Computed example of a mutant assay.
Amino acid sequence: MDAFLVSTAIVALAEIGDKTQLLAFILAAKFRRPWPIVAGILIATLLNHAFAAALGTWLTSLMAPQTLRWVLALSFIAMAVWTLIPDKLDEDDAKLPRFGVFGATLIAFFFAEMGDKTQIATLALAAQYQALVVVVAGTTLGMMIANVPAVLLGDRIATRMPVKLVHAIAASIFLGLGIATFSGAGAAFGL
């Protein structure tokens, strides 16, 4: 249950103000059809995060437990720092292919999420917890918690969101995970 709750909380907080959330705002404003956008975000996130979690789980088989512990701890601390850096949506991320609302959302969201902090967090969480399905379910729920309101409420919430505070909370959680991992909190998992 910890893997699910931590994955959900971290990604929901880290996604606030992230480039993929900005993309969700753009898609909502451009298409004004929220449910195909939400469905596209859900499927893109499931695919993207399943790939990241599988990679994270696989990487644990390549490293000695002590090495993995250090890599994960440093990764979580790096994520804390990265979370404090504001995201900007690149012009290339905002260009949408012509595959309908669902297809455009699916493709744009999947590629915008590649190498994004929430994808990297999913990889690290899967390696930490060794619970691929639980981590993917949690990170996907976190993405939906952050992006569904962005799609449905758009500008009404964008200007009222305390983005810096939310990022500080997410960074604190990542830092806490890094420190806990350094201190051997993953020992139960052989880390």
Score class of each variant (00 low, 15 high):
Phe99Met: 12
Leu72Glu: 02
Pro97Gln: 11
Phe31Cys: 04
Lys30Ile: 13
Ile157Thr: 06
Asp155Glu: 15
Leu123Glu: 03
Thr140Ala: 11
Ala64Thr: 14
Ala94Gln: 14
Ala168Ser: 14
Thr140Gln: 07
Leu47Gly: 09
Pro86Gln: 12
Ala108Thr: 06
Val136Cys: 05
Thr57His: 08
Thr118Ile: 06
Phe4Ser: 10
Phe110Ala: 10
Ile145Trp: 00
Val133Met: 12
Asp90Met: 13
Ala124Pro: 04
Ser7Asn: 09
Ala12Phe: 03
Met161Thr: 11
Ala24Asn: 04
Thr45Glu: 03
Ser7Thr: 06
Val148Asp: 00
Leu153Arg: 04
Ala171Met: 05
Gly100Arg: 12
Thr139Ile: 10
Leu62Asp: 04
Thr57Ala: 14
Leu59Met: 15
Thr20Cys: 05
Ile179Glu: 06
Ala44Leu: 03
Ile169Gly: 02
Arg160Ala: 08
Val134Thr: 15
Ala121Trp: 01
Asp92Glu: 15
Val148Ile: 15
Tyr129Trp: 14
Phe189Met: 14
Pro65Trp: 11
Lys19Met: 13
Arg98Pro: 07
Val148Ala: 05
Pro36Asn: 07
Met161Gln: 05
Ala150Glu: 02
Ala124His: 02
Ala14Phe: 01
Leu5Trp: 15
Ala80Met: 09
Arg32Trp: 09
Ala104Ile: 07
Pro65Tyr: 12
Ala188Asp: 14
Ala158Trp: 00
Ser75Gly: 14
Ala108Asp: 02
Gln21Asp: 00
Leu22His: 09
Gly176Phe: 02
Met79Asn: 06
Trp58Cys: 06
Phe189His: 14
Ala137Asn: 10
Pro149Ser: 10
Phe182Pro: 01
Leu96Asp: 03
Gly17Thr: 05
Ala168Trp: 03
Val163Gln: 05
Thr45Asp: 00
Ala112Asp: 01
Val133Lys: 10
Thr139Leu: 07
Ala50Phe: 11
Phe102Thr: 03
Ile85Asp: 13
Val101Ser: 05
Gly186Thr: 10
Ile179Trp: 06
Val81Gln: 11
Leu62Ser: 08
Ala53Asn: 02
Ile26Pro: 00
Arg160Gly: 01
Ala121Thr: 07
Leu191Thr: 08
Leu152Met: 15
Leu46Thr: 06
Val135Met: 08
Asp90Lys: 15
Ser75Gln: 08
Ala137Met: 13
Ile77Phe: 08
Phe31Glu: 03
Ala73Pro: 00
Gln119Ile: 06
Ala78Gly: 13
Ala29Arg: 14
Ile179Val: 15
Leu141Ser: 10
Ile179His: 07
Gly100Thr: 10
Met144Pro: 06
Asn48Gly: 14
Thr105Glu: 04
Leu27Pro: 00
Gly176Ser: 09
Leu191Arg: 04
Lys164Asp: 09
Gln119Glu: 13
Ala44His: 04
Ala44Ser: 12
Ala185Thr: 11
Val134Asp: 04
Pro97Cys: 11
Thr20Asn: 11
Lys30His: 15
Arg98Asp: 15
Leu55Cys: 09
